[in-house]
Design a protein around this nucleic acid. Sequence first.
DNA 1: TCGCGGGCTCC
DNA 2: GGAGCC
DNA 3: GCGA
Length: 1027
Amino acid sequence: MPEMSLEEYYAEQDERLNRADESMDDYVKRVSRNKNLMPASSVQQHSAALEVRQEHPTLTIPSVSGQNATISTNREIGRATKRKAAEAEADALGPIRRQRIDPEHGLSHAVDNHLPESAPSTHSRSDSLHPKSPVTRTSPKVERNVSPAMDDIESFTIDEIDVPVPASTSHNKPKDIHEGRNTRQFAQDKRRFRQVRSPQAPAASTSELSPILSFSNKSYRKPSRSPKRAPLDLGPPKRPRLDLPRAANILQATENQKSTDLPALEPPLSPIEDVSLEEASAKKPLVNQSSSLFLSIQERIAKHSGGAKTDKVLKLSKKRALPDFSLNEVAVDLGNKSSSMCVSSSPSSNPQSPPPQKKTKTSKDNQEPEPKISAAKGAKLATEQRKGKGKKEKPAPITAADFARKLKVEFEEAAKASGKKHRRSKFLEGKNVFFSGGDWNYASESTRKKMTIIMQCGANLMPEYDPEVTTHIITCAPSVGAMLQDLKLKSLKQIPRRIPTVTWDWVLTVLDDHRLDRQEIDTRLENAVIECTPYAERLDLYKFESYKPRPRASRSVSANSEEGRTCENVSRPINAAASSSSESNDERLAAHDVRHSAAPISPPISPTRRASNSTASTRQDCKKSIDPLAEFYDQARRQKEVEDGWSSIGDVGDSDSDETDDEPDFQPVARAKKGWTCDNKQAQMSGDCPNEDIINKLNELMELHKVKGGSEDRWRVVSYSKTIRALRNHPTRIRSGNEARRLPGVGEKTAQKIEEIITTGDLQRIKYENTNDVEVIRLFQGIYGVGRSIAFKWYQAGCHTLEDLRARKGGVTLTVPQAIGLKYYDDINTRMPREEARAIFELIKPKALAIDPKLSVQIMGSYRRGKADCGDIDILITRPTDDGETHAGVLPRLLRELHASDILTEDLALPEDPEDLEATYRGLCHLPKVEGSRQRRIDFLTVPWTSRGAALLYYTGDDIFNRAIRLKANVMGYALNQKGLFKNVIRDPRDRRIKLDSGVLIASETEEEIFKILNVPWQEPHERVRG
DNA sequence: TCGCGGGCTCC
DNA sequence: GGAGCC
DNA sequence: GCGA
């Protein structure tokens, strides 16, 4: 019956596309259209792979050879695939028996126009709050009043697609209860039924058996996982019977026509059927705090109890016990020094010079009850303190200014005493530097370190900012407002132009580059002016029309610049980098800048400007001459509240200044943390990565930990992946562990490993971790539904290959999803070409719209992110409720039809309540009637119309981006999940994961509003790639 | 020393 | 309620 | 393993 190869299918499809719209000339499509253009194209490989597979009866995976029992399946396929691909090239077109792939071609034709071919799209339109009424179904050829760029990835909503859809009944909610059997029972039936049979056995048409078929028959009162289940009916589920005549008509018609579709059916039912539907679903608690959760918490608390709590007390007391190196000591010498170093920190409330004394007693301290420390503990404490010296005690509260004074004294004494010199470049010598750390009232450890380093660089650190004396400002304040507080100014404009203001990162850059000579640094310093653009991104200013990031000609915080210095100067580093200038310094500077592209603050080029087309933006920059920030100060201040909760942006490493001063090779292991991953659009570094070898090794190690999957391993994986990401985005070759250490997310241990890789080219740890069991477990974990523990269990049972599993060696048992996963091991672990995802979606969407033309059906996941290949297909279904109707009940019907038309082949997980507005389905699908088409993972997700934005955001990912944005929401006091963004979420202080109050929904309808509230610059789906 | 996402289904 | 998935 |  299958008459056409996938390749042919694509070819034909492309032909159609071509006819429909000549302008759609996407790369991938061209590739698939013309073999000769790309001999080894994925399409070819793919089809070749299909051929290979055909050599294996029953479409199962090629057997795994004993010796090479690991990933051999894929590898074998891969090799054979390549062979075949070569053959395929020569092997022109075989006899093409043109049979229509699918009668729906006519349908999908129209859809074609709107199918995204490539990543970029201009803006999401899918989230429109005001969906147009569904287009009429008359015109087969779509009027495209949307630019090609517009109708991209996200444009799958019905309001943009003109698909000839049969009018149908509105979704009818099945009214009767089908013999009390709920879905789960059906699922179980099916499981049992299937389990009896060997997974390999040629399955009877699954559509016959699918429990899906019975979905719509139950109006299913939400059982909420009631422990009791109705007695099982072991017989195969019966053929579905739709209760509602109209629906039945449609279905029958559809089926009768053997998916010829488009039966001219009756017009939609108008009456609102069940308005309560949505409300019902809304009633579902957002968070259920099952008592079990609390129990487990209690358990955990109990477990840690003594230790943790005592520790806390200890810590506090430790703090107390610390020698209070406060003002008293410092104040003394204050007078002597006419020098002018100034330090600040900012965001706190009182910008007005706070009385120093107060500082030493923070409110925190006051809160603490008098610590009761046992003698033993006290002793321990003392020990810790002794050895701790370098080891991070909480810094005694001290203001930045006071610390600066103290520092000065210390430096002088040290100099007198031993004449010891820091090896640090003295490039700040003779400069009166005011440092703004972001919190005037409290010199954090990080602030202290930075100040120390600044001193070591020869600066005259000023305790306070005095425009008459201060010659330079260095800042790592998290916001403009914070810095202004440090400076005790109201506006950046008040900073004289002659005072260059640079960010802390800039200092690092200089320290980093030993090749710089003094003069160069000076020149650079004078040229590097903050001009507040570094803050722009954080404040989202660039989103405002009136603000255009501008070179430092800014009046606000500017250099001692002559008027003429404008764009040229500022854009220099960019240009240098772009033109691979021979001027190494610029190159390096630029490189540094790029490397920290994730950093909100990274001089001298603003990230904003960097992100955009440099020439264009530079041009614009030149036009602006008034302070673009002025109007945003208020906003900045307001924002500060939020930002203060951010991870600081300028934390220095841990090395303790007191001690490290003596170390000859003390390096400023200072690193700027980079704000939120989700905030920075970052095009993946293209081209060759100079650190590929390091990445590979780390990746290897990461994979090993992934397989091991212990609780520790889990976080190692997270950690390594962060490092790998950082390395990927690092434009230059990392030359030492120390250098790597400076990247965000790279800690001591990872830096050591990197060092090892750099010096030896290898990583011993890999060999150490890599054992046979790991390989096998990794193999098994590729099976759907198999994680580490099950894989390990099987390994222990004596299974070492997939064949072993198939033979149920050692008496292992597989659940139904696992059996399916094993059966299609190869398919499921192979990514599909984007084309194929599109083709499948094209088949599905019209079927959904046939059920209800007002449905919104969107494809999400990696497809929406524009990836060239997709691991699975995620489809979001929802429906506007303005007419009082919902999509309840649509999913089961759709699934049934998809089974009937052989698109869906296997179910992996069924929604608990398919009638719910919110349901999830997981299964396998393929292109029907395409010979050897692979089984692909597919997920359906239905959500209430009001949550569509959150769901879209959530399911579009990528996962790294998701984590980042969730975390940011979290820190900002919100909670983000696939249902929406919530505020006033109250979390259990003992376990922040526990929500005591699920809060108030503040956004969920569109992605944009969520981005906006979280202050994340809007990013198109394809820009959300982080992993 | 603690947290590192959160919600769902399967069994 | 642990395991697994997304 | 990292960072607070």
